[in-house]
Design a protein around this nucleic acid. Structure first.
Lengths: 208, 208
DNA sequence: CTGAATATCACATGAAAGTGTTAGAAGCAA
DNA sequence: TTGCTTCTAACACTTTCATGTGATATTCAG
């Protein structure tokens, strides 16, 4: 089972080095390489490689933007970022654009090979320090979760319905209680959360 | 530089195996082990280990719940899940509860040692297949991003104000337009998004 | 047992939000 | 020019929401 790979990287020597790393592996084939995003966006949809290694900063555009466009056309292709940068901004943007892996340029050839294999097998290769940054975005909700704890079970239940956009009437029906009871609970919720509207309450509890 | 580690795992043989893996390493010390969450929540705050390996399913409670409680008291301690399960539910819950790593029980002793080291050094050790599940939650926003593109600049501006919970009157003042105009824009926004309330619109655009 | 917390229900009032319809001004493209 | 889109604005009407001020029942800990 062979893997077809493409490289998008403006630096000639880095690109050459990547290609030789890839072609040095028995089942890996570098089927196309580009030094600018435009050519890549134009040609890759016809080539449909399994995996593409993508640099972020290139003269002529961002590799992230290229991924955003290509992922719509060839969603089965896996994109791995290959960048010197490790900041939250780039990582987050890359992942939302459709990248499934994130390598730093200091990665060894062995790591690169392993990452390509991982991505092709449905994994998301990334260093554990990058994973931490991804994970930490999940944990920023902890502040909000404290305020939710002051609510009773019934109140939390109603809050979740509010979050889904149900009207008081609908909530009442779903919970087999009167609309007046729903009102009362919501009044208490708002008081505990120190807000005075549905949207404010949701913003307070479920972050922005 | 040595690392103090604790183990929370109900299965006696697995726990013993973990402990021997840890103590077999030069700079690792297993300073405490527990076979149930209650004892761990009671004793760990005084012990303050650097890293804790935590099983999810135990008679007496969930390891995830234990992490949730402990992380508040000893936030510097790193928690690594050690579970047979690899489903979205558990992974997501564990990370929001405060776990920074996620290992499956099939991990080799070498991987375990490496994971402990990673977690202690600020990383989030996890397999690339688990990372993929984390990453995919980021990418689910793509559907929403398409619907936002159909909105005009002015409409998007108003949508953002809606998201912050401002009332029509406030939005009108901020944007130097009449409240009637705000209404009109919002009517158009709702039509484009195929919704009929503020909350529904926000859920549609800014994921749930 | 008693009081606090929770859950339930009610009525009144005004503010806010949503719906239907219409319409003028500006800009841009065919 | 004609037509389309966007931004702007207004009026009428209905529904939903927020607030104030009550009340009763249940549960559970001290």
């Amino acid at each position: 089972m062979s893997i077809n790979i493409s490289v998008l990287e403006d630096n000639n020597s880095i690109r050459a080095s990547l290609i030789s790393t890839i072609d040095g592996h028995e089942h890996f084939f570098c089927v196309a390489d580009f030094d600018n995003p435009n050519d890549a966006v134009r040609d890759l949809p016809a080539i449909k490689p399994d995996v593409v290694l993508v640099d972020i900063h290139m003269p002529g555009g961002s590799g992230i933007e290229a991924i955003r466009q290509l992922k719509k056309i060839i969603p089965a292709t896996q994109f791995i970022i290959f960048s010197v940068f490790e900041d939250n901004e780039n990582i987050f943007d890359a992942l939302t654009a459709g990248a499934t892996g994130y390598l730093t340029k200091s990665s060894s050839p062995e790591k690169i090979i392993e990452a390509i294999q991982d991505a092709h097998n449905g994994g998301s290769p990334m260093s554990s320090s990058i994973a931490r940054k991804v994970v930490s975005t999940f944990q920023q909700k902890k502040v909000a979760e404290q305020s939710i704890e002051t609510l009773t079970a019934r109140e939390q239940e109603i809050l979740n319905h509010l979050a889904k956009g149900f009207r008081y009437k609908e909530i009442a029906t779903k919970m087999f209680i009167s609309i007046e009871t729903v009102r009362t609970h919501i009044r208490n919720i708002y008081e505990k959360l120190q807000v005075s509207s549905r949207t404010d309450a949701l913003n307070k509890v479920f972050g922005k």
